[in-house]
């Protein structure tokens, strides 16, 4: 893992060791980074908010000198690609979806699997992008189901990921440092 001293990790955040972090990155409290994700702050800093889930093979790049600010409780699913200038909160970026150029994303959006945004677009709140032709619609009812699923998912990942991967946990919490890994595996195999 390439790592510079400018990377900060918030409390209760779980960052796997196999991630690729480049440049100035601030990871907010409670955010979970799966192994094999890439966050590249090559031009400007990347600020990631609270309680996000970033799965494997996700690429987040800041290609502009300004800040790339990502809100809270977003899910970045496997293999998605995010450039953008601003990402709101409670968005779901599905597998292989792409956010291109300096696009900014509102809150409660869903970018469907394999869909992509236009370059340099502004996507309002509650937008859903779906299907073969990247159609758009606005979702009317936002259910509380997703947020309860999300908090449970986070609790699960915070418990399970340190048992099988070498992780760094933010804050003063050191109970799941990589040094305790062999012991943890023994416990689970009984």
């Amino acid at each position: 893992m390439s790592n510079t001293p400018t990377t900060t990790i918030g409390k209760r955040a779980v960052v796997c060791q196999d991630t690729e972090l480049k440049g100035e990155i601030h990871i907010g409290p409670g955010t979970v980074l799966h192994p094999q994700c890439k966050i590249n702050a090559e031009c400007g800093p990347i600020y990631i908010g609270n309680n996000n889930i970033i799965e494997e093979n996700v690429t987040i790049i800041n290609k502009y000198p300004g800040k790339l600010i990502i809100g809270d409780e977003n899910v970045f699913e496997v293999g998605c690609f995010v450039e953008g200038s601003k990402i709101g909160s409670r968005n779901i970026i599905e597998a292989k979806a792409r956010i291109l150029g300096s696009t900014s994303l509102g809150d409660n959006c869903v970018i469907g699997a394999v869909c992509s945004t236009n370059k340099d677009d502004e996507i309002p709140d509650d937008t859903v992008i779906y299907g073969d032709h990247h159609n758009r619609r606005t979702q009317t009812a936002t259910s509380s189901h997703q947020s309860s699923l999300h908090t449970r998912h986070l609790d699960y990942l915070r418990e399970v990921l340190p048992k099988f991967n070498h992780v760094r946990v933010g804050g003063s919490n050191t109970e799941t440092s990589p040094g305790t890994l062999p012991k943890k595996i023994k416990e689970t195999s009984h």
């Binding site: 192994p35 094999q36 494997e56 093979n57 699960y156 399970v160 048992k163 099988f164 991967n165």
Partner: peptide
């Protein structure tokens, strides 16, 4: 990538 670590609770 094969995720065998995401096991049933």
């Amino acid at each position: 990538v094969i995720r065998g670590d995401l096991r049933r609770t």
